[in-house]
Every structure is written in structure tokens, then in C-alpha cells.
Nucleic acid binder design. Sequence first.
DNA 1: TATTATATCTCGGGT
DNA 2: ACCCGAGGTATAATA
Lengths: 264, 264
Amino acid sequence: MADYMEFKIISKPNNLKEIVEELRRAIAKQMSIIIIGKCEVYYKGRGESKLKEGERIIIIKQDGAFLIHRPIGYKPVNWQPDTSYIRVQHTDHGIEIIAFRKKSQETVKVLLDSIKFIGYGKLVDTGKFVMYLDELEIRDVLYKHPEIIEDGMRFTEKEKKLDIGSIDLFGYDRDGRPVIVEIKRVTATREAVHQLHRYVEAYRRKYGVKPRGILVAPKFTASADEALERLGLKKKEINILKLWSMKKKSIEEGKGKSILEFLS
Amino acid sequence: MADYMEFKIISKPNNLKEIVEELRRAIAKQMSIIIIGKCEVYYKGRGESKLKEGERIIIIKQDGAFLIHRPIGYKPVNWQPDTSYIRVQHTDHGIEIIAFRKKSQETVKVLLDSIKFIGYGKLVDTGKFVMYLDELEIRDVLYKHPEIIEDGMRFTEKEKKLDIGSIDLFGYDRDGRPVIVEIKRVTATREAVHQLHRYVEAYRRKYGVKPRGILVAPKFTASADEALERLGLKKKEINILKLWSMKKKSIEEGKGKSILEFLS
DNA sequence: TATTATATCTCGGGT
DNA sequence: ACCCGAGGTATAATA
């Protein structure tokens, strides 16, 4: 059965014509393909790039994702997140692979000569991926525990819609003043302050009342502090790892430590 | 010579102890390594993630970059842009690879069982990469040809420093009013408008004169238009591909078409 | 499709 | 080391 076939290895590719046929079949069957070899790469679309000859790792994935990796660094040097078609043909010097993306009219062309290795096969990967501790999760903990932000705080809405976008958390402080909370899971920059400020202003324009704005983050840059001050906004520093371990341990209120004790 | 050795292929890995030794040597020699096999992955650091069993492509690059790719999509499901060390050992069930990054205290742990393929070797890649048509290049063309922006415009500075950052282009219009230009190579959003607005305000605070602000982009979202209007800023639509082909053809002024004719 | 905001963003440049 | 902004960002959610 095709879905469970072994990974086919060509360790000394030499018959170009045959290789082209094999690659075409592998692409048609939506297999994962790995090619290692010397190549030049040309990109044209949203910009234009040229990559001179060198040895690289080329990956064609089962959904048509196309990656060309240099032997260093996290990022591919050229790529195509999804392709409309991938065309393979042999040339005088070697093999040419063209990956085309229709919606953005982008083309990646690889000129391969001297191939060190080709491998292909169907990979079966249904394993579930879970990411914890993203902004959403932090937001939910704060929603349940407004006392972390401020005594007497209560939240009434998550992702409250305004004309210009949505607010992470919305509620009222002990004096009944509306409060807009913007959350960052990494260091808050001036940029984040202005994002919060836009929401505060949009709220004021819509409801005629200026709400308080609180920026929640584990850290703040100096310019963020300056902008908060200048725009009359507040900040609340949180320890995300503590928030996280708190959530993991699922502390029951009333029984044992309170959440504020836990976070202290 | 190690640098030019062939890519070593193990198409049916079975002796775990031997494989662990080979991988360790390959890592020590800073080779590129590709492993295809069934694995689980655990990440902990800036966040936390779990990936259940499935077949993936694992890449260890020569600088320690570590990537785990599922058979679909552009992005790796787990990764480490640069690692302090990569440790390999065999367990009861298979092989365990731990990639650790000291500066951010991040760990990726891969539990491999059933390896379909291992390949490693030193890849030589010195080929130069050039990217054309990034924001810098657009900026330089506009700097040389202020008439594209507006009749009578002249630029005096690129990347002019203000307290809060630097302005893409700075100059004066036909009436001698200071002008701040912010460039976007993709659709300008409300975000970009506010970025420009911040620069305009910072300039006013510093010099006591309110400059004009012009946002240059190939396209503008409706909310960008609204924000430009509300904040008293202007826009200038440019065709980036035309700018680019113009630069490529290196049109000499006076001889043949003028740049404005070319862009029309 | 367009818009918006997140990301374990990465990466490079500046201070 | 931090800060800042660009990216062929990609990606998911939402209108």
C-alpha cells in the first residue's frame, strides 16, 4: 500500500532522465521529497533574489510546500509556502525544478547539478500538536483571576470588538471605570503601548467615555515606559512562568494558597 | 578530506548504539544531518509544547540550527534557531535527541523510534545570496527621484534619527515645509499610519514645527485611509514592480523617457 | 478575499 | 546585551 511504503533512497543519482521521472511520480503521489545537491536558485514574485551555486537541502512536502535550506540557520534561503505546481525537467547541465504559486504569481527556480542524494516517500504524521502558554491562555487565566491585575477589578468580556479590532480583556475597576487590557507574552515595546492607546481612543470615540488602559507583560522596554507615561496608560508586570505553573497545578481557590500568594 | 567527503547514507538504521555514535561524531564535526523517522517532540522554554508520535524530517545544521518538520507546511513544528549543545543517546525504545539553547534556557527533546533514514555530511555552500526590492532599495530609488512622491520635493536625509526611532526619508516640499516619509513595500495598514504619526509627533516635539507626513505604499487598507484622514496625513501610491524594473533598466535621465513617464 | 494580530516569530543593525 | 523594525515574513481567526 502506497501510504506505508518505505522511504526510497537514491544515494548516487546519475541517470538524469530516470531521476526526473522518479521525482515527477513522487510529486504526483504527494510524497515527501528530500534532495541534497549543488544548485543555483532564482526567485521572482513579491521581490527578486538570486542565489549562487552551493550545496543545499531541498525539501518538497506532501502539500506542495517547497523549502531550500542552506547548511546554516533556521530559515530557508528560498521557499514557497504552498505551490500551485512543481515542474521537474532535465537540462543540459542537470535538473531544473520550478515551483509556482499562482495566487501571488511567485516562482522559485532551482538549477541542480551534481546531486548527492535523493529520498522520497509518504510520511504518516497524525500526531497531535499542543502549544501551551500562548497569549490566549494567559488571557484566560487573567479573566478568571482579575485580582492579579488589580484589587477590585472585574472582567466582563474577552476579545471585545471595537470598530478597529478587538480588545484582549475588557472590564471595570473598583470605581466602576471601564478598563481595557492589552496582553503581551514577551517584552512590551512602544509598539504595544500604541496598540493599547488606539483601543483606548477608539473606545472613547465610540462611547464618549475615556477608559483606563493597562498593558500587561512580563517586561517593558524603556521606550514603552516613556510612552505609557506620556499617554496616561498603566502597566502591570506579570510572571508568565508562574502564571503557567499555577494553571498547571490547577490550584483550587479556598483550599490551600490563594492565587495571589502563589504568584508572590 | 573531511570537508569534501560524500554524504553518508544509512538507509536501514538498526544498530542503535552504533547510530548514536555516528550521530555524535557527525555533530562534533559540524556536519549537516538529516533524520527521517517516527518521533515524539517536547519543547520547553519561552512556551511549552507536546507533539505526539508521527513521521517527521529532522534536520541538524552545521551551525547547530535544529529543525523538526512535519510532512506539510512551510514552518517547522519544533525548532531551535541556534543551540548550545545537541545531545544524543539511546534509550530503551530508540534514540533521544536533546537540543539546548542556553541564552533562552530552551530545550527541544525528540524521542525517536523507528528510524527510516539517516544521512549526514559536510555541505559546502559559499554561494552569494542577493535579495532585490526590499524596503531599503525602494527608499534609495525614491531618494534619488523625489519627483515620484511630489513635484518640487527634495530629500535631505535617509534614516534620519529621532528620539523614538528613524524616519525612512526626510526632506522638504516645494514650499519648504519639512516632510517625513514612511515606506511600506506591502499593503499599508492602520498600523503603518500610526507609525508615521508617531514620527510626525516626535518631530514636532523636538523641533516645534509640525512636519507633513506621507505614507508611501503600493496599497492601503480602508482603515489606513481612515486613519490618514483623521490624523491629517497624506499617502502616495507607488507601483513597486515598475519602480523595480525602472531601476533594473537604469534609465538615464534626459535620454529617453523621464522617470515619471516610465512610471505612468 | 481582505484585515488584523500573534509568533518559542527570526534576523540584522544599531547603541 | 537590549532595543527596534523589516520580513518574499507565515499562520490563524474573523468579517
